[in-house]
């Protein structure tokens, strides 16, 4: 096999799971997440000749992914329909704690679906990928001020659209 293709294969197979996790939070849907990662990986492949030994392939792919998600016409109808869409049970613990966690997950998922793509992107970058504001700004191609304001708006909207979530977080937070 072509060595470059072999390297790309290896990159895809090791990094796809992590990319899909971010993409799932960005899109709220398995198929949309797959489409997003697939599109980003395809563009990475086109540039693999210069990326493969740079060590920046994953950063490049993620950057493409965020830009596709924020800039593209991403049809959110599927995501908006999600609140009534129960996730499949993963089995295992079915006790009260597990049920509460499932409810919480559903609520958070529904609340995220109410955010704009940019608000969702800053939340995922800041609180899932643990990026700094500067890193998030660089990733999205916006100013740090925009990241700050979008983060603030996103958190406010989360509180507004899911007060029960905010209550839970505040209660648990204050009990610590």
């Amino acid at each position: 096999m072509d060595p470059l293709l072999s390297e790309f294969d290896s990159f895809v197979r090791t990094r796809t799971p992590a990319l899909l996790r971010s993409a799932y939070l960005l899109t709220g849907d398995q198929h949309l997440a797959e489409d997003l990662v697939q599109s980003a990986l395809a563009r990475t492949h086109r540039s693999w000749g210069r990326l493969h030994d740079s060590g920046n392939a994953e950063a490049y792919t993620r950057k493409i992914m965020y830009h596709l998600q924020v800039s593209w016409w991403r049809r959110r109808r599927v995501a908006e329909a999600m609140p009534g869409d129960l996730p499949e049970s993963r089995g295992g613990d079915s006790g009260p704690d597990h049920a509460q966690q499932i409810t919480l997950r559903l609520t958070l998922r529904a609340a995220l679906a109410r955010l704009s793509t940019k608000q969702r992107a800053v939340l995922v970058l800041r609180f899932f990928e643990d990026r700094s504001e500067v890193e998030a700004a660089e990733m999205l191609g916006v100013t740090v001020g925009t990241v700050k304001s979008q983060t603030s708006k996103a958190l406010t909207k989360l509180r507004t659209v899911a007060p029960e979530l905010a209550d839970l977080y505040v209660t648990e937070g204050s009990a610590r």
Binding site: L20, R21, Y24, L25, E34, L41, R90, R105, L108, L123
Partner: peptide, 13 residues
């Protein structure tokens, strides 16, 4: 968010 991300099914792309 990490818990929610667990919902996605890994696939070979």
């Amino acid at each position: 968010l990490a818990d929610l991300a667990d919902e996605v099914t890994p696939v070979d792309l």
